[in-house]
Design a protein around this nucleic acid. Structure first.
Length: 343
DNA sequence: CTCTTTTCCCGCCACT
DNA sequence: TAAGTGGCGGGAAAAG
């Protein structure tokens, strides 16, 4: 794996190291980049607030870089999943980036004028993006035809069936294909926004924002969006039993041989079935499970890393550190430091 | 950091 | 024949 010093959570305070910083797409900057965020009745509030917060911090770090505009077809008050928010009418002129928020899109995709607007602004805007099920709007507008895209894991099948021309990448947090970006559910919108900001303002700014928001920059794509700890609906029964067993016996030996025994299968057959059911290998999955379990404790900062490691089955802190690097691309110490920043 | 040992994992093939 | 299974070998990666 590529070791990536740039993933360190705390950027060098000297604001000058290597790395491309000026935004490459907009040429010489004149005025703030206008970010149009598109919502509609029934949109998901968290899909909206994540990106807004990210761009808010970007503006804080680099004043004058962005101008945010939350828009809806009707303008005025629009009802979200949680509460009503004030929006502005749609505009197309000088729109740098259009971000379509997810939510209950059924009506939105049937709104001819809305779809037409998205299609039209995609011709003028430098970038178009979607959060969560906002991908359906982009797809309906034909922007995803022949392109790779992602959406909330719960909706990937529906997206694929409804729009066969889209190359749905259900495993990715966010996907960039040309100038069309899409992200997975809810909080993945933050990752998407950070990536957009990184493209505009450079890695250092994106890292600083990630630190303020207490998230970390994920490696582009490749990160499974479903948590193994939350996943209780595995496709195959035997595999589900093994995962439950693993969750409840994290501190014990979870070698492939052991797991195969739990599944009542030979090692060979077990790893074969496991891969086809989960898309990943047994050992890698166990490693992820342990990292996911340790992470909240690491961030809480109550126990030392040496104390945490054995509780989730790592031999010691250094092994835990190695696993964190492999799975998250970040060391436990870095995660812990990131949380402390706000205290 | 290098060297050695162990574990993982997947193609291949034989056996139900 | 088709589909599921399990052992073997060895390259790759992790652990020691």
């Amino acid at each position: 794996m590529a070791r990536s010093p740039a993933l360190a959570l705390v950027p060098p305070r000297s604001s000058e190291p290597n790395g491309q910083r000026r935004n490459p797409g907009a040429g010489q900057r004149r005025g703030p980049l206008r970010i149009g965020v598109l919502v509609y009745p029934g949109f998901d509030l968290l899909d909206l607030s994540g990106p807004l917060e990210a761009f808010f911090w970007a503006e804080h770090h680099a004043p004058g870089s962005y101008e945010l505009r939350v828009m809806s077809p009707s303008g005025g008050l629009v009802e979200s999943s949680a509460l009503r928010i004030e929006t502005q009418p749609l505009v197309t002129d000088k729109l740098d980036t259009l971000i379509v928020i997810g939510g209950r899109v059924e009506r939105a995709v049937r709104d001819e004028s809305l779809i037409a607007y998205v299609r039209a602004s995609s011709r003028h805007a430098r970038r178009v993006a979607s959060v969560c099920t906002g991908a359906f709007v982009l797809a309906e507008a034909g922007l995803l035809e022949g392109k790779s895209a992602t959406t909330h894991w719960y909706a990937t099948d529906r997206l694929q069936t409804a729009y066969p021309g889209v190359r749905v990448r259900g495993e990715d947090i966010y996907v960039k294909d040309g100038n069309v970006w899409s992200s997975a559910g809810i909080s993945a919108g933050i990752d998407l926004s950070l990536a957009l900001i990184e493209e505009d303002l450079g890695r250092d700014v994106a890292l600083a924002i990630a630190r303020m928001m207490v998230v970390y920059l994920r490696r582009p794509g490749g990160q499974p969006q479903r948590s193994l700890l939350l996943q209780h609906d595995a496709p195959c029964d035997a595999i589900q039993r093994v995962l439950s067993h693993a969750r409840e016996h994290l501190q014990t030996d979870l070698s492939v041989e052991r797991l195969a025994a739990v599944a009542h299968l030979s090692v060979r057959q077990f790893s074969r079935v496991f891969r086809s059911a989960t898309g990943s290998s047994p050992a890698k999955t166990i490693e992820r499970l342990r990292v996911e379990s340790a992470r909240p404790q690491v961030e809480a900062g109550r126990l030392t890393l040496e104390e945490i490691a054995p509780t989730v089955g790592f031999k010691d802190a250094s092994q835990m550190r190695a696993s964190f690097m492999r799975v998250l691309g970040v060391t436990p110490q870095a995660l812990r430091r990131a949380v402390r920043v706000l205290e």
